[in-house]
Design a binder for these strands. Structure first.
Length: 288
DNA sequence: AAGACGTGGCA
DNA sequence: TTGCCAAGTCT
């Protein structure tokens, strides 16, 4: 069953005009966008990405800045360790790859913060190479359209890559288009909560639809723990203070963000361990 | 190999 | 209001 052709036609007609899809956006821009998009919605990424690339147009530009600048520019995208890793990746690209984003999958995979998904996304979208690209959208679309299940089971890199490989055309351009189209379908049509099957270009061949939308029976992924009152919450509050100040934030000021001394200290210590905060003479700052 | 890791929008 | 979810990675 060929789903690549109808998906490609649909994508060419209705795919969103996103910055990183514009011709000539560049491998560095695509790499930065992919890292920002890890667990963060498109709408929140777009303005931050534009600022980031205007300020640091090349990996060497970012590498020459203090990591704390990257963390501050990251703003509230969330998971600020990504900013630190992106800075470290820029350093590695500058020092080990002559300042040029590598094209090879293994070289990409070796960069900090670049995992199985992002490495393939960069190789496929920035360089046009033929690799199956599998993210949460792709998993969901393939689970439904091909496997006839309402939700993907637990991620299995091997199985997931094989599944995507099986729908990928041989032709390079067609393969790249298919990768983008399956992701896009999962993002805007075949969504997690309320899929818009009426607007789906492959509804006529979807096995889940054909089976009458059977409810998912497998094991569910572990539920996200409550955020309110969690260590993540406290880390976030402390990071907001550090981002907002150009001078060291005192222990007294940090004490105001969270009353529980033990939990606050645990959060601060973990931020220091992560390299997101640095103790100084007068308090704490983003990494210099 | 589960669990940690931010943040905010939406139903 | 609470819970789910958003182009994952790392340990």
């Amino acid at each position: 069953m060929d789903i690549a052709t109808p998906l490609g036609e649909w994508f060419n007609r209705e795919g969103r005009d996103l910055p990183w899809r514009r011709p000539g956006f560049g491998a560095w821009g695509i790499l930065v966008s992919e890292v920002m998009l890890q667990q963060t919605p498109v709408a929140r990424v777009i303005p931050r990405l534009a600022e980031w690339l205007a300020r640091w147009p090349t990996p060497a530009d970012l590498a020459s800045a203090p990591p704390g600048d990257a963390v501050r520019a990251w703003d509230r995208l969330g998971y600020p360790r990504r900013a630190l890793r992106l800075h470290a990746a820029a350093t590695a690209i500058t020092e080990e790859h002559g300042g040029v984003v590598p094209r090879d999958l293994d070289a990409l995979l070796a960069l900090p913060g670049i995992g199985e998904y992002t490495a393939r996304a960069v190789a496929a979208f920035a360089f046009g190479d033929r690799h199956p690209v599998v993210d949460t959208n792709v998993r969901r679309v393939l689970a439904r359209a091909i496997a006839g299940q309402g939700e993907p089971g637990p991620p299995s890199t091997r199985r997931d890559l094989a599944a995507m490989e099986s729908v990928l055309p041989e032709n390079l351009d067609a393969a790249r288009l298919t990768n983008a189209a399956v992701m896009e379908l999962g993002a805007v049509i075949c969504t997690a909560r309320s899929p818009r099957c009426d607007a789906c270009p492959i509804s006529d061949v979807c096995r889940w639809r054909a089976a009458g939308y059977p409810p998912y029976k497998g094991t569910r992924a572990t539920v996200q723990p409550r955020f309110e009152g969690s260590d993540r919450h406290v880390r976030g509050l402390i990071m907001a203070e550090l981002r907002a100040s150009e001078i060291p934030v005192t222990a007294t000021e940090i004490a105001r963000v969270w009353a529980d001394d033990a939990q606050r200290d645990r959060a601060l210590q973990s931020l220091i361990a992560d390299g997101l905060a640095e103790p100084t003479q007068d308090g704490f700052t983003l990494p210099a």
